[in-house]
Simulated assay, not measured.
Amino acid sequence: MKFKGLFFLCIVMIYGVSLHAQEPTVPVFPKLGKSDTIRVASTNDNGVMIPWMQLNEVNIYAARIWKSPAEQAAYNRLRYNVLKVMPYALFAKRRYEQLEQDLAKTSEKKEQKQLVKQCDKEIKDMFNREIKELTITQGQILTKLIDREVGRTTYDIVKQTKGGFAAFSYQIVARVVGHNLKSTYDPNTDRDIESIIRTSGFYQ
């Protein structure tokens, strides 16, 4: 009888402990200060609510040391050229993304051709106003930046929107004046251009 009573007592104790373990803990929030008016996210860490907020990425660049005045002058020219053509690359990116969205909304071939024609007209108008005045070096940088922003070379974009023959014809003309529509962008090879873009404020 004593053994049964002891056994029953152990069962009750174990059951009581398990019930206590299953009781939800009330999260403890930090005390608010006088000026704490900004709502932030929080994480429950063993019953203690820890507030947190996501911060923007901060890039730190060391001051560059030039080997010679000529090297610094070359970098300054590159910076000027990159800043000159970067807005055109961003325009191409936005316009091409808009074209893809518009094409996805319709399955009618006639309407799709009209959308491509309108996009082509806008880019040509910009070309006639400003891009035709670019130097060969600026044009070469622009083709690289279009690949960087759009994820496709200028040749691929022309081929998709105008067809393979048009892309081939444009490439021949481009090669005559020193351009290459198939130019690709490599942030490692083109690290000076990448550094200029990241420190220029285009993505703030």
Rank of each mutant, 00 (worst) to 15 (best):
T43A: 12
P24K: 13
L55S: 10
L78V: 04
N180I: 08
C119M: 11
A104V: 04
E23W: 08
L9Y: 07
L142P: 00
M49K: 13
K182N: 03
I131M: 00
I123S: 01
K109N: 09
Y88W: 02
L145S: 04
V48K: 15
Y155M: 01
A89E: 01
D36P: 04
T184M: 06
G163W: 06
N81H: 10
C10K: 12
E149G: 00
I193W: 02
K93A: 00
K121D: 03
Y203T: 13
K121Q: 09
I196V: 08
P187D: 05
D186W: 04
N46G: 08
M49N: 12
L19D: 10
E100W: 05
N128G: 03
M49H: 10
I50V: 15
T199I: 04
K84Y: 07
V158S: 01
I60G: 03
H179G: 11
T137E: 15
S183Y: 12
T135H: 07
Y88C: 00
A174E: 04
S107K: 15
L99G: 00
T137K: 10
L55V: 08
F165E: 14
N56H: 14
N180Y: 09
L9P: 07
C10W: 13
I136C: 06
L9S: 14
P27E: 11
D156M: 13
D147T: 09
L134C: 00
Y80V: 10
S183H: 05
F127W: 12
V158R: 00
L134G: 00
G139Y: 02
A74T: 12
L145A: 04
G163E: 03
Y203M: 09
Y80T: 14
V40E: 05
Q98N: 06
E194Q: 12
V12H: 10
N128I: 01
S195N: 15
V28K: 15
T161V: 13
P24F: 03
A70P: 14
K182D: 04
E97V: 05
N46L: 07
S183K: 02
R79F: 03
D36L: 04
V48P: 11
E194D: 10
T135S: 15
F3V: 07
V116F: 03
E122Y: 07
E133Y: 10
L99S: 00
Y170L: 14
Q22L: 11
D190S: 03
V173W: 12
K105Y: 07
N81D: 13
R95S: 02
Q140T: 07
S18G: 03
Y203Q: 14
E194V: 02
Q112A: 09
Q98H: 04
D120A: 06
L9R: 13
W66S: 05
R148K: 11
V58A: 10
R191E: 08
E108D: 15
A41G: 09
G164I: 11
D192A: 06
L90E: 02
V17R: 05
Y203F: 13
M13N: 10
I157L: 03
F3N: 15
D156H: 12
S35D: 14
F8E: 15
T184Q: 14
P24V: 06
G5Q: 11
G5S: 08
Y185Q: 01
T153V: 06
P87C: 06
S107Q: 14
P69H: 09
Q138H: 04
A92M: 08
L32S: 12
